[in-house]
Design a protein around this nucleic acid. Structure first.
Lengths: 208, 208
DNA sequence: TTGGAAATACCTCTTATGGGCGATTGACGC
DNA sequence: GCGTCAATCGCCCATAAGAGGTATTTCCAA
């Protein structure tokens, strides 16, 4: 029993790549690719009224960048899945794309067969990434080291919620003086001089 | 020409699963699995002296959790790659595992054939994840929306660096009063009442 | 057993912060 | 042309925060 076709559009400025992708995808069983755009503006103008499941998006486009186009498309069509298909493999491109709402990130050295597999993965709720990209993403989660004691971490979390000395003291059944001492020690360990910087550093280093 | 075997260890408390995995992996060409541990303590005691490439780690272990074991293993053997292989699919388990240093996250419904593919992916520098896991990770990057003006964002960033009114005013060539007004507006937009909470929310929502 | 964290508690002093007010100017949209 | 909003500047005041101390207890590891 044949499943329903997955409807795909392409945004890619290189004519040859665009047409080749179009032919490959549209010619594969289970996939339909009736729309291809050479730039973001034309894609934004048309997509939204179209019955699409997935968009393949290049990043380096004339005019609006593929990341900006992704952001806007996702704002207007939250259900649409967008897969970045690009040569860019720098951290900025990757993380900005994900923040913009991309559901996958593939490098252009991906083979046509793999591409089709990955499109189906996205259709099935996955989030395919080229190997090197996936590793970069999960490395971004790594924690360096945590110099804070459990008590200090607990108090720092409350600080980040906006509580003051007295409120924290009440929460943890301590004297406000003790809370203050802990916070001073936290500042020393994080090499900061106030709450704002402490919370910034702690979040950046995933301490809280 | 045969490539070198990938050397694998298993940490898994369920005897049947552990032995089955062991047999499947060790019986596959290109893979070697000579070590299997029923708990984290025994794994920590032995691994480190062993010539291993990859460890498959369960999360729900007797005693130390697989996440804690992962953290310690990675601290002592940064080069070792650890793949979580678990039934846990809650956000906390996923993100804590990644923060602890896992290089992949697979659910136990992964087929043996896929498992071998994924082990090789990790060996080749990738970071395989089960479909639903990958999507959760990617979604964690999504930006909701940014209610702040450019000026406000600029000032909020300086706040997070620990600058006070006067210092910020000096940086942006404004009166300290104006800076204060901006900050008050930021608090209103973020529905917070102080710096700590503002920075926490802003970072959580990726506004800065 | 001794040294070092961690956790606990207190004091004083100066400065920064946040709340509550008001006000003008210049874009931009409708 | 009118309203809205960002951006700018201002004042007063109560309180919170941070910088400087000192000190005790507990517990773990060297």
């Amino acid at each position: 029993m044949p499943t329903q076709n997955i409807h795909i559009a392409i945004v890619e400025d290189d004519n040859e790549i665009r047409q080749t992708l179009n032919l490959i995808i549209d010619g594969s069983a289970g996939f339909s690719c009736k729309y291809a755009f050479p730039d973001g503006e034309s894609a934004l103008a048309s997509i939204g009224n179209l019955p699409l499941d997935i968009v393949l998006m290049d990043i380096d486009l004339p005019g609006k960048s593929g990341i900006a186009v992704t952001r806007q498309l996702k704002r207007e069509n939250p259900e649409l899945d967008i897969i970045m298909l690009t040569v860019q493999s720098d951290d900025d491109s990757i993380f900005e794309s994900l923040c913009a709402g991309a559901s996958g990130y593939l490098l252009k050295d991906t083979s046509p067969a793999e591409l089709l597999v990955h499109i189906r993965e996205v259709y099935d709720g996955g989030a395919p990434m080229s190997n090197s990209i996936a590793r970069r993403i999960i490395n971004s989660f790594r924690v360096i080291d945590n110099p804070l004691s459990d008590r200090e971490t607990e108090i720092l979390k409350m600080l980040s919620k906006g509580l003051n000395y007295k409120e924290i003291a009440h929460e943890v059944f301590l004297s406000p003086h003790t809370v203050k001492t802990h916070i001073k020690n936290i500042y020393a360990k994080l090499h900061v001089g106030n709450r704002a910087e402490a919370i910034y550093k702690a979040l950046k280093q995933k301490l809280i």
